[in-house]
Nucleic acid binder design. Structure first.
Lengths: 180, 180
DNA sequence: GTCTATAAAGCGATAGAC
DNA sequence: GTCTATCGCTTTATAGAC
């Protein structure tokens, strides 16, 4: 129950503004009860992030090309209902852009891997004749990832009538030649 | 010099992780010397944000339609060199998505106004026959704003070979019928 | 208008009992 | 494995001298 409470608190406040006391309260324990399992607050955050990444990785395993890109969309669509998860990554990815943040390395690597995979998805789709001609795979990948991050923010502020999934699907349909 | 130091510190750390002591150090003053002008840290943040918005508003004043949209692109392009400003808005817009953040109301209103203006830009462009047929103005506006926010994040993590300005210009050129 | 000094509270982390 | 108690530090904000 410690990780669940930590996830909830980090999602609400980000990392920097979360306290071990609040996490302990949510887990119905005391602070030393937690630090016995996770010695520092930073290590607790890392475990929360690792746990959440396993899902996405499993869902994309073995997919390629246009199918991989549709898989990314599925994940976004599924996460769209979970406000906490959205907020966790929205806030953390921003505050962790500062070099000395405990999760800086994690997010740096995450962005590199995601961009690499999505770029590969577009490149493979191109090879199979499923990508509209003249589309640069890496540019399209940067586009799609930016859409995901940017639209998440709009959702948190409850602004705009079109949903994240809807707009990302529109973009993808415009880049790919036929929707399966 | 107080506002300049506050801007610099907030940009580096976000709001929550910035201390009045660090701002005072940058301004070569003591903490009470600052609180005499700005009683609380939250009020200091608000002044910093207000000051920064004046620029953008002035630059867009009196523009409309496709010209307004190009103006938005100019602002993005100009800000792209300023890492501090980028980071200030990237971090703050994320951490202020929590309702009790001192800048929550500011960013809520900011997103509403920006979306409204950009939507109007696309709608006016459509009326003047400059928008590709079948493009929904609000969807295009959400797209452009999401691109701005999302690509800012990619830039902070130094990921992706295409720049924010380049990709946003590509998107806009694809939506508009002729580039002036 | 800026300072020194300090209040009052919260923080992460640890020691040691049970 | 979880607790109470506490250390040492940092935080925002204020009081009062100059």
């Amino acid at each position: 129950m410690i990780l669940a409470s930590a996830f909830e608190v980090f999602s609400k406040n980000g990392y920097l503004n979360s306290s071990m006391a609040e996490i302990a309260r949510g887990a119905e324990m005391t602070v030393p009860g937690i630090t016995n399992h996770f010695p520092t607050k930073a290590q607790l955050l890392e475990e929360v992030l690792k746990e959440r990444d396993l899902d996405a990785n499993n869902h994309l395993l073995g997919r390629h090309g246009a199918d991989l890109l549709r898989g990314v969309l599925n994940i976004v669509s599924r996460d769209e209902a979970e406000d906490n998860l959205t907020q966790l990554f929205a806030i953390l990815s921003a505050e962790a852009s500062v070099a000395d943040h405990p999760a800086h390395q994690y997010f740096t690597q995450r962005y590199e891997v995601v961009l690499e995979n999505v770029t590969r998805g577009f490149a493979e789709a191109a090879k199979e004749g499923q990508l509209r001609t003249g589309v640069d795979p890496e540019a399209a990948a940067q586009f799609l990832i930016a859409l995901s991050d940017g639209l998440q923010l709009q959702r948190l502020y409850r602004v705009g009538k079109h949903s994240q999934t809807e707009l990302m699907r529109t973009f993808l349909d415009n880049q790919l030649i036929d929707a399966p």
